[in-house]
Amino acid sequence: MLGSGLIKGLAVTAKNFVGSFHDPERLVTLEYPEQPAKVAENYRNFPFLVSESADDPMGTLRCVACQICEKECPPQCIYIEKSKAKKPDANGKLQLFPAVFDIDISVCMSCQICVEVCPFDAIKMDQHFEIAESDRFNALLLRREQLAKPNSYFHQIHPTEAAQVDAMLAEAARKAAAAAAAKAAAPKPAASAPAPAAGSTRLAAAQSPAARPAPPAAAPRTEPAPPPSNPA
């Protein structure tokens, strides 16, 4: 009959109206500043530097200042200065570290190339998007102090990827430790093995690999290109 469609339509809107009160699930609106916006796990916007510990982020940066990312970054927004001295990394091996590590995120185009090329899993993509600033020059030039975030934070924002990275690093450390142990067992035949500084491998072997989930790049790794400025 004429008009039945109108009544059906009115019923639909009435149902939605009443439903929006007693069924909060219907309201898809997120009241943003009060309720934090949900981001998907794979969301990534700007890079940050991974450090091993939250207490001493500057001392435990994974980055060894190899400058690959600086060279690869398409808009050239990374600026690195190597340290003069070396200092031991998480495994006790002596490494360079970035004395200066700046990313101009007003220039960064979020391409993630720096992350792809880093052989040390030292730079990863962040999810922090509330980055509006009132100063357009200094505030958007992030220093290494602002860029450094602990591995636990990485686990928090990208759990899957962080677990993979940790597993890979643990595997590499285990292999290195095994190789070092084999070398120590056999007296002299294989001096040409791609051995890093003997002291540090022994140190890595002495450490239990299971105790720390993420012993970082103490041993040379096979998959990526070997770091050119590696002190070894």
Binding site: F17, S20, V28
Partner: peptide, 10 residues
């Protein structure tokens, strides 16, 4: 507000 509620918005 009513229009919003009908469209499931606050």
């Amino acid at each position: 507000k009513l229009l919003g509620r009908v469209q499931n918005r606050p």
